[in-house]
Amino acid sequence: MLMFVLYLVSGRGRNSWLSPPGCAMFTVGVQIKLSSRLGQRIPFLQHLAALAIVEAVRTLPGYQDIDLRVKWPNDIYYSNLTKLGGVLVTSTVMGQTFYLLVGCGVNVTNSNPTLCINDLIQEYNTQNSCSLEPLSCSLLIARSLNCLEDLISCFQQGGADAVLPTFYRRWLHTGTQVRLWSEEGPEAQVVGLDDNGFLQVYSKDQGLVSVEPDGNSFDMLKNLVVMKQH
Rank of each mutant, 00 (worst) to 15 (best):
Trp72His: 08
Asn74Val: 08
Asn74Tyr: 08
Asp75Gly: 02
Asp75Glu: 15
Asp75His: 07
Ile76Phe: 05
Ile76Met: 04
Ile76His: 03
Tyr77His: 04
Tyr78His: 14
Tyr78Cys: 03
Ser79Ile: 07
Asn80Ile: 03
Asn80Met: 02
Thr82Phe: 13
Thr82Leu: 11
Lys83Asp: 12
Lys83Ala: 13
Leu84Asp: 11
Gly85Trp: 09
Gly85Thr: 09
Gly85Gln: 06
Gly86Pro: 01
Gly86Ala: 04
Gly86Tyr: 03
Gly86Asp: 04
Val87His: 00
Leu88Ala: 07
Leu88Tyr: 06
Val89Ala: 02
Thr90Tyr: 00
Ser91Gly: 11
Ser91Asp: 04
Ser91Ala: 09
Thr92Val: 15
Thr92Pro: 00
Thr92Asn: 06
Val93Arg: 05
Val93Asp: 00
Val93Lys: 04
Met94Pro: 03
Met94Ala: 03
Met94Trp: 04
Met94Tyr: 01
Thr97Gly: 01
Phe98Tyr: 15
Tyr99Gly: 00
Leu100Ser: 08
Leu100Tyr: 06
Leu101Asp: 03
Leu101Asn: 07
Leu101Val: 05
Gly103Ala: 07
Gly103Tyr: 05
Gly105Val: 05
Gly105Pro: 02
Gly105Phe: 04
Val106Pro: 08
Val106Ser: 07
Asn107Gln: 09
Thr109Lys: 09
Asn110Ala: 15
Asn110Thr: 14
Asn110Arg: 10
Asn112Met: 10
Asn112Asp: 10
Pro113Val: 13
Pro113Phe: 15
Thr114His: 12
Thr114Arg: 15
Thr114Gly: 06
Thr114Val: 14
Leu115Phe: 15
Leu115His: 12
Leu115Trp: 11
Leu115Ala: 13
Ile117Cys: 13
Ile117Met: 12
Ile117Ala: 12
Asn118His: 15
Asn118Gly: 10
Asn118Pro: 15
